[in-house]
């Protein structure tokens, strides 16, 4: 095979790959500007479904609930997940460590249906025994923390494992006790991992529909639940508009994140080259 055909083939394969991933999304975005009420028939360009979406009180309140839950979930999961990661990477050996590690990460592979069902059962029996079961937003929050915790733990503990231990030892050597070492040295250095863990938990919570459906009560319908139930009544272009907005927000956020990281990395490399040249 000549070099030219080879290059052509690899471009074609790349194109196919991208098409496989993004053509459905593109179609969805295009149809969000469709004038027609029928989701699959194009009749003209219009912003009318965006207007409809903004007037839909139910949809907006569901979105607000979802964001609130995702925010609370991500924050709690980062705190608990970091604690679990510290136990896994800094506590040394203790009996049951392997079991603890396995249990922490089990929700990564456990079907959501089972997680949702088991948490619902727990809430029900809590209600029967103590008469005090979390309701509404609180119940979804607890359920979401349970399953996002695993993801945060994995992200943070991999960062902690590759962190040069002598940094923490040096801080201790210079007179900082363990708590000070954590807040003055470990935390600032692993902060990027905490941020990505937080964002991961936030998105996982934001788009969860299975677990939420199990534990949600009245007045705590999240956005994915709302979307799911409205799609069952027939495809509405409003949903396309909503999806397009969400993709836009995510894409912009991801781009800004990439740009900041890229800029810092470039500056860092330049600094290091300068330092090496000096002496």
């Amino acid at each position: 095979m000549s070099g030219r055909t080879q290059r052509w083939t690899s471009w074609a394969i790349l194109g196919l790959g991208f098409a496989f991933l993004y053509v459905p999304v593109l179609i969805l975005m295009v149809y969000s500007f469709n004038e027609s009420r029928l989701a699959t028939v194009w009749s003209g360009f219009s912003f009318k479904w965006y207007g409809e979406l903004l007037r839909d009180k139910q949809m907006l309140s569901a979105a607000w609930i979802s964001i609130k839950i995702a925010f609370l979930t991500a924050s709690a999961a980062v705190v608990l997940g970091t604690m679990a990661a510290l136990v896994m990477t800094r506590m040394g050996k203790f009996p049951g460590k392997t079991l603890f590690g396995a249990l922490i990460t089990a929700p990564l592979v456990m079907p959501e249906v089972i997680i949702g069902l088991s948490i619902l059962l727990m809430f029900v029996s809590l209600g029967q025994m103590v008469g005090l079961a979390p309701k509404g937003i609180a119940s979804i929050w607890i359920a979401h923390v349970t399953f996002t915790l695993a993801f945060v733990t994995v992200v943070v503990s991999s960062r902690l494992a590759e962190l040069d231990k002598s940094l923490e030892e040096a801080a201790m050597d210079l007179g900082a006790n363990r708590i000070k070492v954590f807040f003055l040295i470990t935390l600032p250095i692993i902060a990027p991992a905490l941020v990505s863990g937080w964002l991961l938990a936030f998105t996982l919570s934001l788009d969860d529909v299975v677990i939420s459906s199990f534990v949600a009560g009245p007045n705590s319908t999240t956005l994915p639940m709302k979307v799911f139930s409205s799609v069952r009544l027939g495809l509405s272009p409003k949903i396309n508009a909503l999806a397009t907005l969400m993709i836009l927000v995510v894409a912009v956020a991801a781009f800004i994140g990439w740009w900041i990281m890229h800029r810092d990395e470039k500056r860092r490399k330049l600094d290091m080259q300068m330092a090496a040249k000096e002496k």
Binding site: D164, S166, L167, A170, I185
Partner: peptide, 12 residues
Amino acid sequence: NMMFQSYALFPH
């Protein structure tokens, strides 16, 4: 006090 092999300077 100890000087570490990797120097362990606090990067931040």
